[in-house]
């Protein structure tokens, strides 16, 4: 048989099992929801300790990043993530995991070019585009006359 790309593509789609979407979504919902609930508790804790809303939000981010980093270092995050999928990728704990895991992995290439450089191998794009988007938003605000001071 002479194979052409289109008919092979159809055949392989037929033969490749799809991801179990409803189950994946349910697990992502439960794990993601649970992490956010922990975040809510952490935020309440910091407010109870007397931090005002903005500071409490920053303290919550730092705490959640710490928890994500700790679980990564204890090899637990990868085990949770196998089931949770987006439920562990999307929360800020996943951002921490994406920074800590390459740092650990590339320690064998040294502290500067290994740990230091590879730290951002996954999270770098998030910072690059997130920060760029925020600057663009700031410039737009300026143009619209939202600027105060200078």
């Amino acid at each position: 048989m002479k194979l052409d790309k289109q008919s092979y593509q159809r055949l392989l789609e037929q033969k490749s099992p799809p991801s179990p979407l409803p189950l994946d979504c349910l697990k992502a919902f439960l794990f993601g929801g649970a992490i956010c609930t922990v975040g809510e508790a952490v935020s309440n804790f910091w407010q109870w300790r007397g931090l005002e809303t903005t500071d409490a939000a920053a303290a919550t981010s730092i705490t959640m990043v710490f928890l994500g980093a700790l679980l990564t270092c204890l090899h637990l995050y990868e085990k949770l993530a196998k089931h949770a999928g987006a439920g562990t990728i999307v929360p800020i704990t996943g951002f921490a995991n994406s920074i800590v895991s390459p740092a650990m992995e590339f320690k064998s290439e040294g502290l500067v070019l290994g740990v230091g450089a590879k730290l951002f191998v996954i999270a770098g794009p998030v910072l690059a585009y997130g920060i760029s988007a925020s600057v663009i938003y700031g410039l737009v605000l300026m143009l619209l006359g939202g600027g105060g001071g200078a």
Partner: peptide, 17 residues
Amino acid sequence: ERQYRFPLAYGGQRTPT
């Protein structure tokens, strides 16, 4: 894994294929 995919401790999900 470290060359082709992700660091070992990275929380990714594998597809059935």
